[in-house]
Write a protein that binds this DNA or RNA. Sequence first.
DNA 1: CGTAAGATTGACCTATATCAAATTGAGTGG
DNA 2: CCACTCAATTTGATATAGGTCAATCTTACG
Lengths: 281, 281
Amino acid sequence: MGDEGSRMNLPQNTDVHGFRPTPLRQSAANPPNQKEMTRSIEAMCTHGECVELRPQQRMSLPSAEKVVLLREGMLAIDAMPAKGKLQILDFLVAGDVVSASVVLPTRGASLRAITSTSLVSLDVSANDFDVPAHEYRTLLFAQCQNQLARVNIYQLMIGRLETEPRVASFLLGLVLRNASEDAPDLTIALPMSRTDIANYLVINSDTLSRTMMRFRALGLIERATRHAIRVIDLDGLRKKSPLAPLLSAVFEKGGGWLGSGFAHHAERTAPIHPPTARIVS
Amino acid sequence: MGDEGSRMNLPQNTDVHGFRPTPLRQSAANPPNQKEMTRSIEAMCTHGECVELRPQQRMSLPSAEKVVLLREGMLAIDAMPAKGKLQILDFLVAGDVVSASVVLPTRGASLRAITSTSLVSLDVSANDFDVPAHEYRTLLFAQCQNQLARVNIYQLMIGRLETEPRVASFLLGLVLRNASEDAPDLTIALPMSRTDIANYLVINSDTLSRTMMRFRALGLIERATRHAIRVIDLDGLRKKSPLAPLLSAVFEKGGGWLGSGFAHHAERTAPIHPPTARIVS
DNA sequence: CGTAAGATTGACCTATATCAAATTGAGTGG
DNA sequence: CCACTCAATTTGATATAGGTCAATCTTACG
């Protein structure tokens, strides 16, 4: 298909959403050479089909032999375990990959763009490009490990935590992922709607709203815009989340468990307009 | 350490639990040669440290460079997201592997033997044995994919399903994994306690009990022994589980999504005595 | 048999879901 | 620049699934 589909003249979106394509991160154990990896990815990209999606545009899941690499923007993985009950399994950011095994063919499962996104669809079995098969395998393995770690945190979040700890953990994860020690800009972007967040956390969006408001009343956070909040009392937030140590270990700079979380930088987040939805593929 | 630890004279346990060490299964995409794989595993085993665990014995999680391969028996992966709230992330059976990335270092996370188990601890970075590095990588990757698929189902189960569908899905998964088309023995073993199951499903054990009783009253299942139930009305069970199609696709013989589920054969399940707990390592 | 851990059952209560109404605010057209 | 419109969010009122606690009941095993 090439990169047809949806690359029409978006007023200014192409320039507005603030996501830089970041290189894939590796798992802590056996970290392959960073520069090498980046090159591999570039090479792989030239062999895949590029697709651009506009906000709220959907895409079917990659087939078994395919792997989708997100280069820019934010994607949601939607699933529908029970009729009418949407669950968002993950928010993906630049550098993340999706393969069929990451998202089983559940009824109603699909990828949905939160912001304008740019992605490449690669063929897993095609070993015949510039990239050595070994490197390629390593990359996939690293990503797989990565996904597993993310999924683990998610399991714990939606498993036994009550609403407050759950929301706190979500926010904390976002902050830790973004914050740099020197410039503690604790603003986090939430390009997705409250409903999306609620579906991710497996709570009601009303309940989410109430909880966020309570956090605001407690002086833990404040609202920057509708799609960005600033954390005021980081320690207070930590106290609300039993997963705080785990989140630090995994997401924090230097914590070094692995990279590539579901967060992204906030200061570049500008107005995001979700125009029309359209189905691709 | 070799295989010291806990191999004292258990009355008859060593002979009683009915788990055969099964070969690792592969993901559907790119399935490596089965016989080759089995050989790899054998070879790898000779290079790892073997450990035997008795029921309820605990073991710390494998360190980052290690991978634990379960050869026989059943293990639970315990985690404690919030103080006092145990969550069982997975039940592992012969052929499954655990690595650090599969279970993040959460507070209170550990492996616990449900039945007597036999396992090997392998060093991921040691590429210098009989097994070609390539094969080894492939194996790990396949297992990783495997885990991801399992984890996905789990997410959907504990995510948005209510109690009945959740329990039904759990049972259905177990049945589908065991049943062979010709001899539909719908007996499933539950070597773990109700509390363990409840902690896996993230529901209260009281609620689990009630639900199971309701299923029994509805004629969906009947109790064989305390640690085994028989499914009477498979279709009835399916109707209770929105995940039925997914479970079929993943676990059913010939469904061919992948192998290695959390279920195991039931007819060989004999009295299981959980004697004393002990901490290893 | 006796005993104790595990499983079932009942009574009650609370955290969230649900539903609906009120508010906000981003995009639009004058 | 302002009023207008519609969707997203917040907030209030109410309902309920499932959690909690305590009292049996079962069953494995000494």
